[in-house]
Design a protein around this nucleic acid. Structure first.
Length: 499
RNA sequence: GGCCCCAUCGUCUAGAGGCCUAGGACACCACCCUCUCAAGGUGGAGACACGGGUUCGAACCCCGUUGGGGCUGCCA
Protein backbone atom coordinates (compact mmCIF):
# COMPACT_ATOMS: atom_id res chain seq x y z
CA UNK A 1 0.00 0.00 0.00
CA UNK A 2 1.48 3.32 -1.03
CA UNK A 3 1.17 6.30 1.28
CA UNK A 4 2.02 9.80 0.15
CA UNK A 5 1.66 13.17 1.73
CA UNK A 6 1.39 16.73 0.62
CA UNK A 7 3.15 18.82 3.25
CA UNK A 8 2.76 22.56 2.77
CA UNK A 9 3.71 25.17 5.30
CA UNK A 10 1.03 27.83 5.73
CA UNK A 11 3.31 30.81 5.27
CA UNK A 12 1.44 32.37 2.37
CA UNK A 13 -1.45 31.83 0.05
CA UNK A 14 -1.71 28.53 -1.78
CA UNK A 15 0.12 28.82 -5.07
CA UNK A 16 0.14 26.91 -8.31
CA UNK A 17 3.44 25.18 -7.63
CA UNK A 18 2.06 23.73 -4.42
CA UNK A 19 -1.15 22.80 -6.19
CA UNK A 20 0.83 20.91 -8.83
CA UNK A 21 2.81 19.07 -6.16
CA UNK A 22 -0.41 18.20 -4.33
CA UNK A 23 -1.99 17.04 -7.57
CA UNK A 24 0.91 14.75 -8.49
CA UNK A 25 0.83 13.23 -5.03
CA UNK A 26 -2.89 12.78 -5.26
CA UNK A 27 -2.76 11.29 -8.77
CA UNK A 28 -0.05 8.89 -7.68
CA UNK A 29 -2.14 7.78 -4.71
CA UNK A 30 -5.23 7.28 -6.87
CA UNK A 31 -3.27 5.49 -9.57
CA UNK A 32 -1.68 3.09 -7.11
CA UNK A 33 -4.73 2.70 -4.94
CA UNK A 34 -2.85 4.26 -2.06
CA UNK A 35 -3.45 6.86 0.60
CA UNK A 36 -3.04 10.60 0.25
CA UNK A 37 -2.32 12.65 3.37
CA UNK A 38 -2.30 16.35 4.07
CA UNK A 39 0.24 17.43 6.64
CA UNK A 40 0.44 21.05 7.68
CA UNK A 41 4.05 21.90 8.48
CA UNK A 42 3.47 24.70 10.94
CA UNK A 43 6.56 24.58 13.11
CA UNK A 44 7.59 28.12 12.25
CA UNK A 45 5.17 29.98 14.50
CA UNK A 46 6.31 33.45 13.40
CA UNK A 47 5.52 32.86 9.78
CA UNK A 48 2.48 30.64 9.94
CA UNK A 49 -1.04 32.00 9.64
CA UNK A 50 -4.18 30.05 10.31
CA UNK A 51 -5.98 31.70 7.41
CA UNK A 52 -3.45 30.16 5.08
CA UNK A 53 -4.36 26.72 6.38
CA UNK A 54 -7.97 27.45 5.43
CA UNK A 55 -6.78 28.61 2.03
CA UNK A 56 -4.91 25.37 1.44
CA UNK A 57 -7.86 23.23 2.46
CA UNK A 58 -10.40 25.12 0.40
CA UNK A 59 -8.19 25.23 -2.69
CA UNK A 60 -7.60 21.50 -2.45
CA UNK A 61 -11.30 20.87 -2.04
CA UNK A 62 -11.96 23.05 -5.06
CA UNK A 63 -9.58 20.91 -7.11
CA UNK A 64 -11.14 17.74 -5.80
CA UNK A 65 -8.18 16.54 -3.78
CA UNK A 66 -9.43 15.76 -0.31
CA UNK A 67 -6.99 13.97 2.00
CA UNK A 68 -7.84 10.35 2.79
CA UNK A 69 -7.09 10.62 6.50
CA UNK A 70 -7.37 13.28 9.17
CA UNK A 71 -5.20 16.31 8.53
CA UNK A 72 -1.92 16.12 10.40
CA UNK A 73 -0.33 19.13 12.00
CA UNK A 74 3.25 19.37 13.10
CA UNK A 75 2.26 21.82 15.79
CA UNK A 76 0.40 18.98 17.48
CA UNK A 77 3.39 16.69 17.48
CA UNK A 78 5.92 18.52 19.65
CA UNK A 79 6.04 15.73 22.24
CA UNK A 80 6.82 13.20 19.57
CA UNK A 81 9.64 15.36 18.27
CA UNK A 82 11.02 15.75 21.77
CA UNK A 83 11.27 11.98 22.19
CA UNK A 84 12.98 11.59 18.84
CA UNK A 85 15.43 14.39 19.55
CA UNK A 86 16.26 12.87 22.94
CA UNK A 87 16.98 9.58 21.24
CA UNK A 88 19.23 11.19 18.64
CA UNK A 89 21.06 13.11 21.35
CA UNK A 90 21.57 10.09 23.51
CA UNK A 91 22.81 8.05 20.58
CA UNK A 92 25.39 10.76 19.94
CA UNK A 93 24.25 12.01 16.56
CA UNK A 94 23.84 15.59 17.70
CA UNK A 95 25.98 18.15 19.45
CA UNK A 96 25.16 21.53 20.90
CA UNK A 97 26.40 24.69 19.26
CA UNK A 98 26.31 28.30 20.39
CA UNK A 99 27.98 29.91 17.40
CA UNK A 100 26.24 32.85 15.88
CA UNK A 101 25.95 33.17 12.16
CA UNK A 102 28.37 36.08 12.16
CA UNK A 103 30.96 34.11 14.07
CA UNK A 104 30.77 31.22 11.64
CA UNK A 105 31.03 33.53 8.67
CA UNK A 106 34.03 35.31 10.15
CA UNK A 107 35.85 32.03 10.66
CA UNK A 108 35.07 30.62 7.23
CA UNK A 109 35.24 33.72 5.05
CA UNK A 110 38.45 32.63 3.29
CA UNK A 111 37.57 28.97 2.89
CA UNK A 112 36.69 27.32 -0.38
CA UNK A 113 33.72 25.55 1.12
CA UNK A 114 31.60 27.85 3.21
CA UNK A 115 29.17 26.56 5.76
CA UNK A 116 29.56 25.51 9.34
CA UNK A 117 33.14 24.62 10.25
CA UNK A 118 32.53 22.13 13.04
CA UNK A 119 33.77 24.50 15.69
CA UNK A 120 31.57 23.09 18.49
CA UNK A 121 31.92 19.43 17.62
CA UNK A 122 34.28 18.58 20.45
CA UNK A 123 33.38 21.34 22.88
CA UNK A 124 30.94 19.15 24.77
CA UNK A 125 28.47 21.98 25.27
CA UNK A 126 25.34 21.27 27.31
CA UNK A 127 22.20 20.78 25.28
CA UNK A 128 19.82 23.13 27.08
CA UNK A 129 19.05 26.35 25.28
CA UNK A 130 21.36 25.61 22.37
CA UNK A 131 20.92 24.68 18.76
CA UNK A 132 21.71 21.05 18.01
CA UNK A 133 23.73 20.18 14.97
CA UNK A 134 23.84 16.84 13.22
CA UNK A 135 27.37 15.53 12.84
CA UNK A 136 27.68 14.68 9.13
CA UNK A 137 30.17 12.04 7.94
CA UNK A 138 33.52 13.34 6.72
CA UNK A 139 33.66 11.13 3.70
CA UNK A 140 31.65 8.75 1.59
CA UNK A 141 28.52 9.65 -0.33
CA UNK A 142 24.85 9.68 0.44
CA UNK A 143 22.78 8.31 -2.38
CA UNK A 144 19.31 9.50 -3.28
CA UNK A 145 17.45 7.05 -5.45
CA UNK A 146 15.01 9.29 -7.23
CA UNK A 147 12.14 7.78 -9.20
CA UNK A 148 12.25 10.60 -11.70
CA UNK A 149 15.97 11.35 -11.94
CA UNK A 150 17.62 8.11 -11.02
CA UNK A 151 20.60 7.74 -8.71
CA UNK A 152 22.05 10.95 -7.35
CA UNK A 153 25.19 11.00 -5.22
CA UNK A 154 25.96 13.69 -2.70
CA UNK A 155 29.50 13.78 -1.31
CA UNK A 156 29.21 13.86 2.46
CA UNK A 157 32.14 16.19 2.87
CA UNK A 158 30.20 18.88 1.02
CA UNK A 159 27.47 18.62 3.64
CA UNK A 160 28.01 20.81 6.66
CA UNK A 161 26.96 19.89 10.19
CA UNK A 162 23.48 21.33 9.80
CA UNK A 163 21.24 22.51 12.60
CA UNK A 164 18.53 19.94 13.22
CA UNK A 165 17.07 21.39 16.41
CA UNK A 166 16.56 25.02 17.29
CA UNK A 167 17.76 26.46 20.55
CA UNK A 168 14.15 26.47 21.72
CA UNK A 169 14.10 22.70 21.33
CA UNK A 170 11.92 22.56 18.26
CA UNK A 171 12.99 20.51 15.26
CA UNK A 172 13.83 22.21 11.99
CA UNK A 173 12.12 21.33 8.75
CA UNK A 174 14.33 18.39 7.71
CA UNK A 175 14.08 16.65 11.05
CA UNK A 176 10.38 17.19 11.62
CA UNK A 177 9.77 16.09 8.07
CA UNK A 178 11.67 12.84 8.53
CA UNK A 179 10.13 12.01 11.89
CA UNK A 180 6.68 12.57 10.41
CA UNK A 181 7.34 10.54 7.29
CA UNK A 182 8.50 7.67 9.46
CA UNK A 183 5.55 7.86 11.82
CA UNK A 184 3.06 8.21 9.02
CA UNK A 185 4.66 5.37 7.12
CA UNK A 186 5.13 7.40 4.00
CA UNK A 187 6.29 5.21 1.13
CA UNK A 188 6.86 7.88 -1.52
CA UNK A 189 8.03 11.41 -0.97
CA UNK A 190 6.87 13.44 -3.95
CA UNK A 191 7.91 17.10 -3.73
CA UNK A 192 9.57 19.96 -5.55
CA UNK A 193 13.06 19.76 -6.93
CA UNK A 194 14.11 22.62 -4.67
CA UNK A 195 14.13 20.08 -1.84
CA UNK A 196 16.55 17.76 -3.60
CA UNK A 197 19.67 19.17 -1.87
CA UNK A 198 18.16 18.61 1.58
CA UNK A 199 17.21 15.03 0.80
CA UNK A 200 20.61 13.53 1.69
CA UNK A 201 20.35 15.28 5.07
CA UNK A 202 16.97 13.67 5.53
CA UNK A 203 18.40 10.28 4.65
CA UNK A 204 21.22 10.72 7.16
CA UNK A 205 18.69 11.60 9.85
CA UNK A 206 16.45 8.73 8.84
CA UNK A 207 19.29 6.25 9.31
CA UNK A 208 20.32 7.90 12.57
CA UNK A 209 16.78 7.48 13.81
CA UNK A 210 16.93 3.82 12.80
CA UNK A 211 20.09 3.36 14.82
CA UNK A 212 18.62 5.20 17.75
CA UNK A 213 15.64 2.91 17.57
CA UNK A 214 17.88 -0.12 17.87
CA UNK A 215 19.71 1.35 20.83
CA UNK A 216 18.44 2.01 24.31
CA UNK A 217 16.82 5.33 23.66
CA UNK A 218 13.37 3.85 23.51
CA UNK A 219 12.67 5.45 20.19
CA UNK A 220 10.33 4.02 17.53
CA UNK A 221 11.20 1.37 15.01
CA UNK A 222 13.55 0.72 12.17
CA UNK A 223 11.70 1.99 9.13
CA UNK A 224 12.50 1.43 5.48
CA UNK A 225 13.45 4.53 3.53
CA UNK A 226 10.74 5.93 1.30
CA UNK A 227 11.22 6.34 -2.44
CA UNK A 228 11.83 9.90 -3.58
CA UNK A 229 10.50 11.76 -6.56
CA UNK A 230 11.55 15.36 -7.10
CA UNK A 231 9.27 17.22 -9.43
CA UNK A 232 10.65 19.84 -11.82
CA UNK A 233 10.13 23.42 -10.68
CA UNK A 234 7.38 25.61 -12.00
CA UNK A 235 9.08 28.75 -13.21
CA UNK A 236 8.10 32.23 -14.29
CA UNK A 237 8.75 34.10 -17.52
CA UNK A 238 12.37 34.64 -16.50
CA UNK A 239 12.87 30.94 -15.86
CA UNK A 240 13.09 31.47 -12.09
CA UNK A 241 11.30 29.44 -9.48
CA UNK A 242 7.81 30.81 -8.94
CA UNK A 243 7.71 33.15 -6.02
CA UNK A 244 4.70 34.05 -3.95
CA UNK A 245 5.96 37.59 -3.72
CA UNK A 246 6.79 38.31 -7.35
CA UNK A 247 4.45 36.15 -9.35
CA UNK A 248 0.65 36.16 -9.57
CA UNK A 249 0.27 32.54 -8.66
CA UNK A 250 -2.42 32.27 -6.01
CA UNK A 251 -4.78 29.44 -6.85
CA UNK A 252 -7.63 31.42 -5.28
CA UNK A 253 -7.01 34.14 -7.85
CA UNK A 254 -7.64 31.73 -10.69
CA UNK A 255 -10.76 30.47 -9.03
CA UNK A 256 -12.00 34.03 -8.68
CA UNK A 257 -11.36 34.74 -12.32
CA UNK A 258 -13.65 31.90 -13.19
CA UNK A 259 -11.44 29.05 -14.18
CA UNK A 260 -13.10 25.68 -13.86
CA UNK A 261 -11.43 23.34 -11.38
CA UNK A 262 -11.49 20.48 -13.90
CA UNK A 263 -9.73 22.67 -16.47
CA UNK A 264 -7.26 24.03 -13.96
CA UNK A 265 -6.46 20.56 -12.74
CA UNK A 266 -6.07 19.29 -16.29
CA UNK A 267 -3.69 22.13 -17.09
CA UNK A 268 -1.67 21.59 -13.92
CA UNK A 269 -1.26 17.92 -14.81
CA UNK A 270 0.29 18.96 -18.13
CA UNK A 271 3.10 20.84 -16.40
CA UNK A 272 5.94 18.37 -16.23
CA UNK A 273 3.92 15.42 -17.33
CA UNK A 274 1.84 14.29 -20.30
CA UNK A 275 -0.77 11.61 -20.78
CA UNK A 276 1.23 10.66 -23.87
CA UNK A 277 0.71 10.98 -27.60
CA UNK A 278 -1.35 13.93 -28.77
CA UNK A 279 -3.64 13.94 -25.79
CA UNK A 280 -3.97 17.09 -23.73
CA UNK A 281 -7.55 17.66 -22.74
CA UNK A 282 -8.25 14.55 -20.74
CA UNK A 283 -10.64 13.67 -17.97
CA UNK A 284 -9.77 12.72 -14.46
CA UNK A 285 -10.11 9.02 -15.28
CA UNK A 286 -7.35 9.27 -17.88
CA UNK A 287 -5.19 11.34 -15.56
CA UNK A 288 -5.46 8.72 -12.86
CA UNK A 289 -5.06 5.79 -15.21
CA UNK A 290 -1.99 7.14 -17.01
CA UNK A 291 -0.11 8.91 -14.25
CA UNK A 292 3.32 7.51 -13.49
CA UNK A 293 6.08 9.21 -11.56
CA UNK A 294 8.61 7.62 -13.89
CA UNK A 295 7.14 9.64 -16.76
CA UNK A 296 7.49 12.97 -15.04
CA UNK A 297 9.81 15.41 -16.79
CA UNK A 298 13.19 16.49 -15.58
CA UNK A 299 13.17 20.04 -16.86
CA UNK A 300 11.36 23.00 -15.31
CA UNK A 301 8.04 24.11 -16.80
CA UNK A 302 6.62 27.55 -17.33
CA UNK A 303 3.11 28.36 -16.25
CA UNK A 304 1.36 29.68 -19.37
CA UNK A 305 -1.87 31.51 -18.59
CA UNK A 306 -2.82 31.72 -22.27
CA UNK A 307 -2.84 27.98 -22.63
CA UNK A 308 -4.73 27.61 -19.38
CA UNK A 309 -7.30 30.10 -20.65
CA UNK A 310 -7.71 28.25 -23.92
CA UNK A 311 -8.17 24.95 -22.16
CA UNK A 312 -10.66 26.55 -19.80
CA UNK A 313 -12.59 27.88 -22.78
CA UNK A 314 -12.83 24.38 -24.18
CA UNK A 315 -14.16 23.03 -20.90
CA UNK A 316 -16.55 25.96 -20.60
CA UNK A 317 -18.00 25.48 -24.05
CA UNK A 318 -18.72 21.82 -23.56
CA UNK A 319 -20.76 22.46 -20.42
CA UNK A 320 -24.50 21.83 -20.79
CA UNK A 321 -26.16 25.26 -20.92
CA UNK A 322 -28.01 24.86 -17.66
CA UNK A 323 -24.79 23.95 -15.93
CA UNK A 324 -23.05 26.91 -17.48
CA UNK A 325 -25.81 29.10 -16.09
CA UNK A 326 -25.62 27.49 -12.67
CA UNK A 327 -21.86 27.76 -12.46
CA UNK A 328 -22.02 31.39 -13.55
CA UNK A 329 -24.02 32.28 -10.44
CA UNK A 330 -21.09 33.40 -8.29
CA UNK A 331 -20.52 36.08 -10.94
CA UNK A 332 -24.14 36.84 -11.88
CA UNK A 333 -25.84 36.72 -8.49
CA UNK A 334 -23.02 36.80 -5.92
CA UNK A 335 -25.23 38.36 -3.25
CA UNK A 336 -27.64 35.45 -3.45
CA UNK A 337 -24.83 32.95 -3.42
CA UNK A 338 -23.16 34.55 -0.45
CA UNK A 339 -26.48 34.65 1.40
CA UNK A 340 -26.79 30.91 0.80
CA UNK A 341 -23.37 30.44 2.35
CA UNK A 342 -21.69 29.51 -0.89
CA UNK A 343 -18.34 30.60 -2.26
CA UNK A 344 -18.19 33.90 -4.09
CA UNK A 345 -15.24 35.56 -5.80
CA UNK A 346 -13.34 38.12 -3.76
CA UNK A 347 -14.86 37.16 -0.44
CA UNK A 348 -11.63 35.66 0.85
CA UNK A 349 -9.83 38.93 0.25
CA UNK A 350 -12.63 40.93 1.87
CA UNK A 351 -13.63 42.55 -1.40
CA UNK A 352 -16.50 40.51 -2.80
CA UNK A 353 -17.04 40.75 -6.52
CA UNK A 354 -20.17 42.59 -7.65
CA UNK A 355 -21.62 42.55 -11.15
CA UNK A 356 -22.28 45.94 -12.73
CA UNK A 357 -26.06 45.70 -12.40
CA UNK A 358 -28.25 46.18 -9.30
CA UNK A 359 -29.15 42.70 -8.00
CA UNK A 360 -32.89 43.23 -8.41
CA UNK A 361 -32.56 43.94 -12.11
CA UNK A 362 -30.93 40.61 -12.90
CA UNK A 363 -33.32 38.15 -14.49
CA UNK A 364 -32.05 34.62 -14.77
CA UNK A 365 -34.68 33.74 -17.37
CA UNK A 366 -33.26 36.45 -19.59
CA UNK A 367 -29.72 35.27 -18.94
CA UNK A 368 -30.70 31.73 -19.83
CA UNK A 369 -31.83 32.87 -23.26
CA UNK A 370 -28.47 34.52 -23.91
CA UNK A 371 -26.34 31.92 -22.19
CA UNK A 372 -25.54 29.70 -25.19
CA UNK A 373 -24.24 32.73 -27.07
CA UNK A 374 -22.26 33.93 -24.09
CA UNK A 375 -20.83 30.52 -23.42
CA UNK A 376 -18.94 30.33 -26.66
CA UNK A 377 -17.50 33.81 -26.25
CA UNK A 378 -15.91 33.70 -22.82
CA UNK A 379 -12.91 31.84 -21.54
CA UNK A 380 -13.58 32.55 -17.87
CA UNK A 381 -16.72 33.17 -15.83
CA UNK A 382 -15.33 36.54 -14.84
CA UNK A 383 -16.07 37.72 -18.39
CA UNK A 384 -19.74 36.79 -18.23
CA UNK A 385 -21.13 39.93 -16.58
CA UNK A 386 -19.48 42.18 -19.15
CA UNK A 387 -21.13 40.17 -21.92
CA UNK A 388 -24.67 40.66 -20.68
CA UNK A 389 -24.61 43.79 -18.53
CA UNK A 390 -26.60 45.78 -21.09
CA UNK A 391 -29.55 43.49 -20.49
CA UNK A 392 -29.73 44.26 -16.79
CA UNK A 393 -28.66 47.88 -16.64
CA UNK A 394 -31.27 50.62 -16.94
CA UNK A 395 -29.02 52.21 -19.53
CA UNK A 396 -26.10 50.55 -21.28
CA UNK A 397 -22.70 51.60 -20.13
CA UNK A 398 -21.52 53.55 -23.13
CA UNK A 399 -17.97 52.91 -24.23
CA UNK A 400 -16.65 56.20 -25.57
CA UNK A 401 -14.31 54.65 -28.12
CA UNK A 402 -17.09 52.51 -29.49
CA UNK A 403 -19.33 55.55 -29.80
CA UNK A 404 -16.63 57.39 -31.68
CA UNK A 405 -15.87 54.55 -34.02
CA UNK A 406 -19.36 53.38 -34.88
CA UNK A 407 -21.41 56.54 -34.53
CA UNK A 408 -19.61 59.85 -34.13
CA UNK A 409 -17.15 59.16 -36.93
CA UNK A 410 -20.03 59.32 -39.42
CA UNK A 411 -22.69 61.18 -37.49
CA UNK A 412 -25.02 61.79 -40.40
CA UNK A 413 -24.85 58.26 -41.65
CA UNK A 414 -25.31 56.90 -38.17
CA UNK A 415 -28.29 59.17 -37.52
CA UNK A 416 -29.98 58.10 -40.72
CA UNK A 417 -29.40 54.50 -39.87
CA UNK A 418 -30.59 54.75 -36.29
CA UNK A 419 -33.70 56.64 -37.33
CA UNK A 420 -34.31 54.10 -40.05
CA UNK A 421 -34.00 51.33 -37.49
CA UNK A 422 -36.35 53.05 -35.06
CA UNK A 423 -38.97 53.30 -37.76
CA UNK A 424 -38.50 49.76 -38.98
CA UNK A 425 -38.40 48.20 -35.54
CA UNK A 426 -41.73 49.76 -34.52
CA UNK A 427 -43.78 47.38 -36.58
CA UNK A 428 -41.71 44.34 -37.51
CA UNK A 429 -41.86 40.84 -36.13
CA UNK A 430 -39.76 40.71 -32.97
CA UNK A 431 -37.55 37.72 -33.52
CA UNK A 432 -33.86 37.46 -34.42
CA UNK A 433 -34.35 36.43 -38.04
CA UNK A 434 -36.90 39.14 -38.69
CA UNK A 435 -34.76 41.75 -36.99
CA UNK A 436 -31.84 40.72 -39.11
CA UNK A 437 -33.85 41.00 -42.32
CA UNK A 438 -35.26 44.36 -41.32
CA UNK A 439 -31.85 45.70 -40.35
CA UNK A 440 -30.41 44.45 -43.61
CA UNK A 441 -33.06 46.44 -45.47
CA UNK A 442 -32.45 49.57 -43.40
CA UNK A 443 -28.75 49.22 -44.15
CA UNK A 444 -29.29 48.79 -47.86
CA UNK A 445 -31.31 51.94 -48.13
CA UNK A 446 -28.45 53.70 -46.36
CA UNK A 447 -25.91 52.11 -48.65
CA UNK A 448 -24.41 49.95 -45.92
CA UNK A 449 -23.80 46.28 -45.74
CA UNK A 450 -25.03 44.47 -42.67
CA UNK A 451 -21.66 44.57 -40.92
CA UNK A 452 -21.63 48.36 -41.14
CA UNK A 453 -25.33 48.75 -40.55
CA UNK A 454 -25.42 46.83 -37.31
CA UNK A 455 -22.54 48.70 -35.71
CA UNK A 456 -24.35 51.92 -34.69
CA UNK A 457 -27.33 49.93 -33.49
CA UNK A 458 -25.11 47.69 -31.43
CA UNK A 459 -23.40 50.63 -29.78
CA UNK A 460 -26.67 52.42 -29.15
CA UNK A 461 -28.25 49.40 -27.54
CA UNK A 462 -25.36 47.59 -25.85
CA UNK A 463 -22.85 50.41 -25.48
CA UNK A 464 -20.04 48.59 -27.28
CA UNK A 465 -18.92 47.49 -30.72
CA UNK A 466 -18.38 43.94 -29.57
CA UNK A 467 -20.65 41.52 -27.83
CA UNK A 468 -23.01 38.64 -28.35
CA UNK A 469 -24.93 38.41 -31.63
CA UNK A 470 -27.00 41.58 -31.97
CA UNK A 471 -30.35 40.33 -33.16
CA UNK A 472 -30.72 37.79 -30.42
CA UNK A 473 -29.77 40.52 -27.99
CA UNK A 474 -32.44 42.84 -29.38
CA UNK A 475 -35.02 40.08 -29.28
CA UNK A 476 -34.29 39.41 -25.64
CA UNK A 477 -34.18 43.06 -24.63
CA UNK A 478 -37.61 43.81 -26.09
CA UNK A 479 -39.00 46.24 -28.61
CA UNK A 480 -39.82 49.11 -26.31
CA UNK A 481 -36.41 49.19 -24.65
CA UNK A 482 -34.54 48.82 -27.92
CA UNK A 483 -36.42 51.68 -29.51
CA UNK A 484 -35.93 53.80 -26.42
CA UNK A 485 -32.16 53.26 -26.52
CA UNK A 486 -31.96 53.97 -30.23
CA UNK A 487 -33.85 57.20 -29.69
CA UNK A 488 -31.58 58.09 -26.80
CA UNK A 489 -28.58 57.64 -29.06
CA UNK A 490 -30.09 59.89 -31.71
CA UNK A 491 -30.72 62.48 -29.05
CA UNK A 492 -27.18 62.22 -27.77
CA UNK A 493 -25.96 62.71 -31.31
CA UNK A 494 -28.11 65.84 -31.68
CA UNK A 495 -26.89 67.17 -28.37
CA UNK A 496 -23.39 66.85 -29.72
CA UNK A 497 -22.10 65.08 -26.66
CA UNK A 498 -19.50 62.44 -27.05
CA UNK A 499 -17.96 64.06 -30.09
C1' G B 1 32.68 29.96 -4.55
C1' G B 2 30.86 24.75 -3.25
C1' C B 3 27.26 20.81 -4.04
C1' C B 4 23.21 19.28 -7.05
C1' C B 5 19.65 19.34 -11.09
C1' C B 6 18.38 20.47 -16.13
C1' A B 7 18.61 21.25 -21.84
C1' U B 8 13.09 19.10 -28.54
C1' C B 9 9.47 25.04 -32.02
C1' G B 10 8.53 31.66 -28.22
C1' U B 11 5.63 28.26 -24.44
C1' C B 12 3.63 23.21 -22.77
C1' U B 13 4.91 18.75 -24.79
C1' A B 14 5.08 13.67 -28.21
C1' G B 15 9.50 10.98 -28.82
C1' A B 16 12.17 5.24 -24.70
C1' G B 17 18.59 3.81 -31.44
C1' G B 18 15.94 2.97 -37.33
C1' C B 19 8.38 4.34 -37.45
C1' C B 20 11.57 11.62 -37.46
C1' U B 21 11.48 14.74 -44.01
C1' A B 22 10.79 15.43 -35.59
C1' G B 23 4.09 14.95 -34.32
C1' G B 24 0.29 17.72 -31.32
C1' A B 25 -1.42 21.99 -28.42
C1' C B 26 -1.12 27.38 -26.95
C1' A B 27 0.56 31.86 -28.96
C1' C B 28 1.63 34.15 -33.94
C1' C B 29 0.51 34.99 -39.48
C1' A B 30 -2.84 34.20 -43.82
C1' C B 31 -7.32 32.59 -45.79
C1' C B 32 -12.40 30.59 -45.16
C1' C B 33 -16.95 31.08 -42.35
C1' U B 34 -19.43 35.47 -40.44
C1' C B 35 -24.25 41.01 -38.10
C1' U B 36 -19.53 42.69 -34.22
C1' C B 37 -16.60 39.62 -31.19
C1' A B 38 -15.65 34.86 -30.40
C1' A B 39 -15.88 29.81 -31.68
C1' G B 40 -14.85 26.63 -35.81
C1' G B 41 -12.20 25.13 -40.49
C1' U B 42 -7.81 25.20 -43.85
C1' G B 43 -2.90 26.51 -44.56
C1' G B 44 1.89 28.83 -42.94
C1' A B 45 6.11 30.03 -40.13
C1' G B 46 8.62 27.75 -36.01
C1' A B 47 12.87 23.22 -32.27
C1' C B 48 16.36 18.27 -31.23
C1' A B 49 22.01 24.26 -27.42
C1' C B 50 27.21 23.14 -29.20
C1' G B 51 31.40 19.72 -29.80
C1' G B 52 33.26 14.97 -29.50
C1' G B 53 32.50 9.83 -29.10
C1' U B 54 29.67 4.69 -29.18
C1' U B 55 26.85 2.42 -33.31
C1' C B 56 25.61 0.09 -39.84
C1' G B 57 22.36 3.98 -37.79
C1' A B 58 21.44 8.89 -32.44
C1' A B 59 16.64 13.91 -30.56
C1' C B 60 17.16 9.34 -27.86
C1' C B 61 23.39 6.16 -24.98
C1' C B 62 28.48 8.21 -23.02
C1' C B 63 31.95 12.41 -22.25
C1' G B 64 32.93 17.47 -22.49
C1' U B 65 31.56 22.63 -23.39
C1' U B 66 28.07 26.36 -23.06
C1' G B 67 23.75 28.10 -21.10
C1' G B 68 19.82 28.03 -17.43
C1' G B 69 18.07 26.72 -12.55
C1' G B 70 18.06 25.04 -7.32
C1' C B 71 20.33 24.74 -2.58
C1' U B 72 24.10 26.71 0.40
C1' G B 73 19.03 30.13 7.33
C1' C B 74 18.35 28.28 14.64
C1' C B 75 12.68 29.40 6.74
C1' A B 76 10.20 25.46 4.47
Amino acid sequence: MTRVRFAPSPTGYFHVGSARTALFNWLFARHTGGVFLLRIEDTDVERNREEHVDGIISAMAWLGMAPDEAIERQSARTERYRVAIDALWEAGFLYACDCTRDEVEARTADRATPGYDGYCRARGLAREGRALRYRTPDDGVTVVEDLIRGRIEFPNRAMEDFVAVRSDGKPLFVLANVIDDRDMQITHVVRGEDLLPTTPKGILLWRALDEAAEGEAGWGEVTPLPAWAHLPMLVNEQGKKLSKRRDPVAVELYREQGYLPEAFRNYLALLGWSPGGDREKVGLDVLVAEFRLEDVHHAPARFDVQKLAHLNGEYLRELPVDEFVARSRPWTVPEEEAAAGRWVPGAAAGAPFRPPWPPERFDEAVFVRMAPLVQERVTRFEEVPGMVDFLFLADPELDERSWQKAIAADADGARALLEGAIAAYQGCEWAPDDLKAVTLAVGESAGRKLAKAQAPIRVAVTGRTVGPPLFESLAVLGRAEVVRRLAAAVERLSAGTGS
